[in-house]
Amino acid sequence: MKLGPLLLAAGLLAISPPAVRAETMEPGELDALQRQIDSSRERQKELQAQSAAAQKEADEIRDKLIEAAARVQAYEADVSASEDRLQGLKGAEAVIAAQLERRRDEMAELLAALTRLDRHPPPALAVRPDDALASIRSALLLGAVVPELQAEATDLRDRLEQLAALRKDILDERETLGTAQTSLEAERR
């Protein structure tokens, strides 16, 4: 059904005086025209309802897009923060590894000294009484060296524990980063 001619006819009827309309139209034509006008009004209401529904749907989609964009920004911030933490942890790991590397020669000498003491312990007084002076010197040397060796061993253990903890933190942070990146990609899709 074409609305153009109907609307034109309705417009002409609206501007025509009531007496002219009734005189020039037959009763069947008037009823048919009224039905067309009523049908046009119903169709107009339907179209307005469809338009309102489409506008509501567009508003909902826009709101969802805004929410998705906010979530993407949050995931991007998480990824960025995780990458920053990971870089910091890697830097700390590199510092401790460099410190341990620098002390490698010292540790090698320390281990060599401990090995020599283990292979050639100081003489006992009961076995060789004539070498009492050497025994006293060895005891004094051991008395001075052992606390220092214990301190070095404790420091080395602490640094190795720090290194192990950093490596665990790095693995955890990599996992966190991977999760954040997966979430980000899913949200972008």
Score class of each variant (00 low, 15 high):
residue 1 M to E: 06
residue 1 M to L: 10
residue 3 L to D: 09
residue 3 L to C: 02
residue 4 G to S: 11
residue 8 L to N: 10
residue 9 A to G: 09
residue 9 A to M: 15
residue 9 A to E: 08
residue 9 A to Q: 11
residue 10 A to Q: 07
residue 10 A to R: 08
residue 12 L to R: 13
residue 16 S to F: 05
residue 19 A to S: 15
residue 19 A to W: 11
residue 21 R to V: 15
residue 22 A to D: 14
residue 24 T to W: 09
residue 25 M to Q: 09
residue 25 M to G: 01
residue 27 P to S: 02
residue 28 G to F: 03
residue 28 G to C: 03
residue 30 L to N: 04
residue 32 A to T: 12
residue 33 L to C: 00
residue 34 Q to E: 07
residue 34 Q to A: 11
residue 34 Q to L: 10
residue 35 R to E: 09
residue 37 I to M: 03
residue 38 D to I: 11
residue 39 S to F: 03
residue 42 E to R: 14
residue 43 R to E: 09
residue 43 R to M: 05
residue 43 R to H: 06
residue 44 Q to A: 12
residue 47 L to A: 05
residue 48 Q to A: 13
residue 49 A to G: 03
residue 50 Q to N: 12
residue 52 A to C: 03
residue 53 A to I: 02
residue 53 A to R: 08
residue 54 A to R: 14
residue 55 Q to F: 00
residue 55 Q to G: 01
residue 57 E to N: 12
residue 57 E to T: 08
residue 58 A to I: 01
residue 60 E to R: 15
residue 62 R to D: 06
residue 64 K to M: 13
residue 64 K to E: 15
residue 64 K to H: 11
residue 65 L to Q: 11
residue 67 E to D: 15
residue 67 E to M: 05
residue 67 E to P: 04
residue 68 A to V: 08
residue 68 A to S: 13
residue 69 A to V: 00
residue 70 A to Q: 13
residue 75 Y to F: 12
residue 75 Y to I: 02
residue 75 Y to T: 01
residue 75 Y to C: 11
residue 76 E to I: 00
residue 76 E to K: 07
residue 76 E to S: 10
residue 78 D to C: 05
residue 80 S to N: 14
residue 81 A to F: 02
residue 84 D to T: 12
residue 85 R to E: 04
residue 87 Q to S: 12
residue 88 G to L: 11
residue 93 E to K: 08
residue 93 E to D: 06
residue 94 A to V: 04
residue 95 V to Y: 00
residue 95 V to H: 11
residue 98 A to T: 05
residue 100 L to I: 00
residue 101 E to N: 12
residue 103 R to S: 04
residue 103 R to P: 00
residue 105 D to C: 03
residue 107 M to T: 10
residue 107 M to L: 10
residue 109 E to F: 10
residue 110 L to V: 04
residue 111 L to V: 04
residue 112 A to N: 09
residue 112 A to Y: 04
residue 112 A to K: 09
residue 114 L to R: 07
residue 114 L to W: 04
residue 115 T to K: 13
residue 117 L to F: 05
residue 118 D to N: 07
residue 119 R to V: 09
residue 121 P to K: 01
residue 121 P to E: 01
residue 124 A to Q: 08
residue 125 L to P: 04
residue 127 V to W: 02
residue 128 R to T: 13
residue 129 P to Y: 08
residue 130 D to G: 06
residue 131 D to Q: 11
residue 131 D to T: 10
residue 133 L to Q: 13
residue 135 S to V: 01
residue 139 A to E: 07
residue 141 L to N: 10
residue 144 A to N: 03
residue 147 P to H: 02
residue 147 P to Y: 03
residue 150 Q to P: 01
residue 152 E to L: 14
residue 152 E to D: 13
residue 152 E to Q: 14
residue 153 A to V: 05
residue 154 T to N: 13
residue 155 D to M: 11
residue 155 D to I: 09
residue 162 Q to S: 09
residue 164 A to E: 15
residue 170 I to P: 05
residue 170 I to E: 13
residue 171 L to A: 15
residue 172 D to S: 14
residue 172 D to Q: 13
residue 174 R to T: 06
residue 174 R to W: 01
residue 175 E to C: 08
residue 175 E to N: 15
residue 177 L to C: 05
residue 178 G to I: 02
residue 179 T to F: 06
residue 180 A to F: 04
residue 180 A to C: 00
residue 181 Q to E: 15
residue 183 S to H: 12
residue 185 E to S: 11
residue 187 E to G: 03
residue 188 R to W: 02
residue 188 R to A: 01
residue 189 R to F: 02
